[in-house]
Amino acid sequence: MDIDSKLTDDVLCLTVQESRIDAAGAVAFKEKIRSLVTDFSGRVVIDMHKVDFLDSSGLGALVAVMKMLDGGRRLELARCGTIVRKVLMLTRMDSVFELHETVPSGVGSGQDAA
């Protein structure tokens, strides 16, 4: 699972460089993110713009990632595609994550990281 990471001030932006978070990749996704957020206490934003498919296993992985964030932090998801948004809305998980139309300003997307 290829995920870029960029830290700007105290916001960690993780850009998923895969087109799907599905049953075949959910465990690898969780473990990769765990390694990236361990001991980090700021905001975590996942840039989802390359992800064009999310299934319920992938959704469960996103929930598991939010549980890794202590101190009551919400997991933030930016630039979700239509299928991702549909799955989040159907399951009402759109109210659980903090969704952004764009990567929050001041946060560098991993996309343009060197």
């Binding site: 299934d55 319920s56 959704l59 469960g60 929930v63 939010m66 549980k67 919400r74 659980v96």
Partner: peptide
């Protein structure tokens, strides 16, 4: 958050 389900959505 700790009580959120990670499955059962399918």
């Amino acid at each position: 958050v700790a009580d959120l389900p990670e499955g059962g959505f399918g």
